[in-house]
């Protein structure tokens, strides 16, 4: 079988006044966590809705498990929308069963699976309470469970951590990774770049209705590397600065690090200078450690979006 669980190819979707998606292609590998990133209003939610068969694209093809996506495939997808709510007057348990039955589970199966999940997320005591009594974070847990309960092959989470405190956000991250390890594929849309580095294997960056960057997180970070290094050493900083002068664009002191060594951050002119730079530094001071600093997804996000916007000012 195809290694990609989902392919969306050349998707175009226009609304009356603007183009939401313009020739966007993404390929989501099976069993991975796929990040769908992009500024507000870039077209992510529209793309997700197309993948989830809620709206139809003007042109382009979505392939799921090797065949063209149909309404029946939605049973194999779990989608947690960004804007989400529950029926306020309904009891939590009844409501969860209602949603589970919409996903095709029988009442007995739904109840059994729900009890397990409620146990795991420590919310069993809410079963008979009305939704309006729950806090936002509590309601989010219920929504999360409802999304994953029917064990779909593909899970789509749109901003899953909004409204969560750090402790519960971690619980959720753990559960998402556990689901991935059990074989689910996850599409994960967020503005929280730290969680992208933590969770995502691959990403696509959607900006102004275009897919402007796509690839594995690890490779992208290397690709976007600006040759930043961090040295810690014993000795005089001025000697080190002098020795590295020919190779560096920038050099700045970080003071003394945790281990009591002096520390500097620097950017090399070129990656090819790395060996020479280390040799020179070693002569000048007593070098204790060095490491390459890869750019954060935050930086990659900002740089890509700004570059795209500069090159395409008309949009």
């Amino acid at each position: 079988m195809d290694n990609n669980i989902l392919k969306a190819e050349h998707i175009v979707k226009t609304f009356t006044k603007h183009t939401a998606l313009d020739d966007v292609t993404i390929e989501v590998p099976r069993g991975k966590v796929y990040g769908l990133l992009g500024p507000n209003g870039a077209g992510k939610t529209t793309l997700i809705r197309i993948i989830n068969h809620i709206t139809a694209p003007d042109s382009g093809v979505v392939t799921f498990n090797g065949h063209q996506l149909t309404a029946a495939d939605v049973a194999n997808i779990g989608y947690l929308p960004e804007e989400r709510g529950l029926y306020k007057k309904m009891k939590v348990g009844d409501q969860a069963i209602f949603f589970a039955r919409l996903k095709g589970l029988s009442k007995q199966d739904a109840t059994k699976a729900l009890k397990e999940w409620f146990e795991r997320l420590e919310i069993s005591s809410w079963w008979d309470r009305k939704v309006e009594e729950l806090s936002k974070g509590m309601a989010q847990k219920v929504q999360f469970i409802v999304t994953v309960l029917h064990r779909p092959e593909l899970l789509i989470f749109d901003e899953p951590f909004s409204g969560f405190d750090p402790i519960n956000a971690n619980v959720l991250k753990r559960e998402i990774l556990r689901l991935r390890d059990e074989g689910s594929t996850v599409i994960f849309s967020t503005h929280n770049m730290a969680s992208v580095e933590e969770l995502c294997d691959n990403i696509s960056l959607i900006n102004k209705s275009h897919n402007i960057l796509t690839g594995s997180v690890r490779e992208l970070r290397r690709e976007f590397s600006d040759n930043s290094l961090e040295f810690s050493f014993l000795g005089e900083q001025s000697k080190l600065t002098e020795a590295l002068q020919p190779f560096t664009r920038e050099i700045s002191s970080n003071g003394i690090d945790r281990d009591g060594f002096l520390s500097v951050s620097l950017k090399l002119n070129s990656g090819d200078d790395l060996r020479d730079a280390i040799a020179k530094a070693n002569e000048a001071v007593d070098l204790r450690s060095f490491r390459q600093v890869l750019p954060s997804m935050d930086e990659i996000f900002i740089r890509s979006v700004e570059m795209f916007n500069q090159n395409n000012p008309q949009q």
Partner: peptide, 17 residues
């Protein structure tokens, strides 16, 4: 009401509108 409290978004994620 469903539209305002966004429960609709969850329902249409599994059911045709």
């Amino acid at each position: 009401e469903e539209k305002n409290n966004r429960v609709l978004e969850i329902v249409v994620s599994s059911v045709k509108p």
